[in-house]
Design a protein around this nucleic acid. Structure first.
Length: 338
DNA sequence: GGGCCAATACTG
DNA sequence: CAGTAT
DNA sequence: GCCC
């Protein structure tokens, strides 16, 4: 799945702005607006040659229309040019694209006088994960061919099965959505007997380190077996035997009951996740990667503040039932590139 | 003018 | 607790 | 940023 994208002249600059707002300025909402517009534009079956063609497009309002108009008539986008010329914006945005460095620390490092990733490398105050993010900056940012993700999915499934028969490993994310290139690998793990997933991640990770597949840890979250709804999590880097190139890989282990929700959440895309959660909200439910729950309005005595709590869980045995329950038309994974 | 997904978990 | 990430 |  690799749509041609006939509007790269527009989505290119928009993509840069999206990254600047997200990584440099920490403005996720504005970044998300560009994200949605890009998503819409890159799937158009024709090239936009006049701003009238997007007059009524969803996610493209007054401001983005003006941007498109400017690109069509001048071939450039002054807003972006301005950012490009702004060393502070440019640098902070670059720093913020390092794994482990967010907008706040990106600014902090800039104000300390750093101007390049090389400068950053010499800073003593980097945390362990920031150092890793920096060390493998190129590797982490490199797209992964679909074939390699497929190989990893099979490899991990095989090893997982050997440890615990019946374990299921699925590679989610953009891989499951059918993309020909993926950013990272999101492995979703479960077991149909409802209990064998407990404590499994620790064993899997150990095994994957033994064979030199997992190389660096970024985040580990193992839980006690008593805690039923906690999700064991692992973020890290991996590589192929005989190769040094690292890839970002995540593991999430769900109970059989949570599995359909985990699968949806980790398959995405994020636009769909938000849409589903808003729909659930409107029906008086809360949706996340572990389940669908009745919303309980909880009136705090002080003030008129009303907060929401998770109530009774709705059982869904597969993704379809979740879509159906919240009232969203069913989408195959490869139709979820919204 | 104000909401915009949601909850959790790690790190320092 | 603030920051970061998913 | 978009959309009520």
């Amino acid at each position: 799945y690799a749509p041609p994208n006939l509007n790269q002249n527009i989505t290119g600059p928009f993509g840069e702005l999206r990254d600047i707002y997200k990584n440099g300025l920490g403005d996720n909402r504005r970044s998300y607006s560009y994200h949605k517009a890009i998503s819409y534009l890159e799937k158009l079956p024709y090239q936009v040659t006049s701003v009238y063609q997007v007059k009524n497009a969803p996610s493209i309002g007054k401001s983005l229309q003006n941007h498109i108009q400017e690109i069509l008539s001048t071939g450039k986008l002054s807003k972006l040019e301005h950012f490009r010329d702004d060393e502070k914006v440019k640098t902070v945005s670059l720093f913020g694209s390092v794994w482990g460095i967010g907008p706040s620390n990106a600014l902090k490092y800039y104000e300390k006088g750093h101007r390049s990733l090389e400068d950053l490398r010499h800073d003593e105050s980097l945390t362990r994960t920031q150092r890793l993010g920096l060390q493998y900056f190129e590797d982490i940012n490199a797209k992964i061919p679909r074939s390699e993700a497929n190989y990893v999915e099979n490899l991990v499934q095989e090893i997982a099965s050997a440890i615990q028969p019946g374990i299921s490993v699925v590679c989610g994310g953009s891989y499951r959505r059918g993309k020909s290139l993926v950013g990272d690998m999101d492995m979703i793990v479960t077991h149909s007997d409802g209990t064998s997933h407990k404590g499994f991640l620790r064993r899997l990770i150990q095994r994957l380190k033994d064979i030199d597949f997992l190389t660096e840890d970024l985040l580990i979250g193992y839980h006690e077996e008593l805690n039923d709804d906690a999700v064991d999590t692992y973020f890290g880097l991996c590589k192929y035997p005989g190769r040094e190139q690292r890839h970002r890989i995540d593991f999430k282990v769900y109970s059989w009951e949570q599995y359909p929700f985990g699968l949806i959440a980790w398959t995405g895309n994020d636009v769909l996740n938000r849409r589903l959660r808003i729909l659930a909200n409107e029906k008086g439910y809360k949706l996340d990667d572990t389940g669908l729950y009745r919303t309980i309005l909880y009136e705090k005595h002080k003030r008129h503040k009303v907060s929401k709590l998770k109530g009774a869980r709705v059982i869904c045995k597969n993704e379809k039932e979740v879509f159906e329950f919240v009232g969203h038309p069913w989408l195959e994974p490869n139709e979820r590139n919204l």
